[in-house]
Structure formats: C-alpha cells, structure tokens
Amino acid sequence: MRQRGWEEDRTAIAIDVRKSDTAIICEDNFYQIPPKADAEFARALTEALSGKVPKATFGMKPKEILELANVLKKAEFGVIFAGLGLVYSMPDISPMKNLLEAMNKKTDFHLMPMVGQYNMRGFNHTLFDKTGYINRVSFEGENTYHGPQCSVVEVLKEKRADAALIIGSDPLSSLPGRIAANLKEIPTIVIDPCKTFTSQIANVTIPAAVTGVECKGEAIRMDGVKVELTQMRKSDKMADADIIEKIMEAI
C-alpha cells in the first residue's frame, strides 16, 4: 500500500527516438535520443547508477542522466518495457544486461519485452516450454536448433524453405519486401481467421475460428498473465490447433 495510492505514486519515464503517445503522457519525463543511440544511452545510465559521471555523445548532458538515475534508484519496484526498436538496434544486448544489473544493485527492477502482435508471448512461452528457446527454432530431423540462422528471414532469404505453413501471421506484410517475395515461389498454406496479403498468394487457405469469439482458447498477455478466452458465438469453423491436429492425423 502507498500513502497516496499507486495511481499517484507511480512515475512513468519514456525514452524514445520519437515523441510517441506514451511520451506525451510522460511530459517532462520524456528523453528523446537519436536512432541507434540505445546502447550508448544504456551504458551512460549504467555509469550514472554506479556513481560515475556519465558520458554521452548525442547531446544529453551528464546532469540529465544523473538526475534520471536518481529517480530510478528511488523506485521501490521498477519495470523497463523494452520496445521492439531496442531489440532491432542492439545486435549485442550486454549494455541492457549491465544496466539491469546496476539497477538491481540499488533496487528491484525488471524487464518486460513488448511484442508487436496478439499472443506473441503465448507462442514464445509454448516454444520455450517445449524447446528451451525463444523464437528462431529449427526442427530438422530429430534435433532442434536455435540461432539467427534459423530466423524466418534468413531461411527465406537463402531459399532454404521449399514449402511454408503460415499460421495466424501475415509475412507478406511484415517481412522485408524482397524476402517476402520469395514466398511466392514456394507452395504456401495459410491458416488464419482473416484474409491477409499472404492468404491471397497462398496455394491453400484454411479459415480458422477466431479465438475468444468463435472458439475458446488461451492467450498470454504482454505482461505474462495467462488469459482464458471463452467462445461467444456458434461457429462451424475449427480452431487453429484442431486444424493442425487433423493435418497431423492425415500425415
């Protein structure tokens, strides 16, 4: 319990390359940094938390970074919501790891990765439970492999896939154009409740029920909370999991 309640006693800080809707809400607690400055910013903040004078080459004054570090130190429980841009701009995540270590020497801080789509975290939870990996897993033969070389981008770029089963995703829209175009050259099957750019080029499209509307199911929210979804209306469409089971039976 807090003296003035959680609503009043919480502090939100936005660090972004643009003034997002969230940044507008954060008002004075918004720090705009240039693109690709994430690692340098994390390093400077780590220095400030460790009692050193931070250095930043992109125009943020040491005093500003020290003040920010002081706010973070005073938090009793903190969470970093890491956006997609942070992942994309950091080939090596050690600056973030060091920052979290420095924060946790002073107080209790956690990191929560943001995801771009519904139930992305649910997918990765399941994948992690089954394989011990997150994203980019290859099931070749008996073994499972993991790494950048297994990413859908690399697999399609090098034309290693000779068929694609796409479930609840629209790679034609979300992958780099040149790579997405390679999908048109191989047989594709799309299982999705919606018509998508990818379903339009697919050789086979199987419409699936919408979870939480036409079938029941489970999803994991971005904060890791499991949500039970119930069926709201009757439908003769099958859930995606049932479709896959039927395909497996046939195989």
């Binding site: 693109p35 997609l84 841009g85 992942v87 994309y88 701009s89 080939p91 980019r136 790494g147 950048p148 070389q149 297994c150 990413s151 981008v153 690399e154 770029k157 780099p176 040149r178 790579i179």
Partner: peptide, 12 residues
C-alpha cells in the same frame, strides 16, 4: 534483407 548475422533486419 541484410541482418548482419543477427537474423533481424533493420525494420526501424
């Protein structure tokens, strides 16, 4: 399509 070995293109 270049990912510098990370598997993730520079989407942003």
């Amino acid at each position: 399509a270049e990912t510098s070995g990370t598997g993730v293109p520079a989407f942003k």
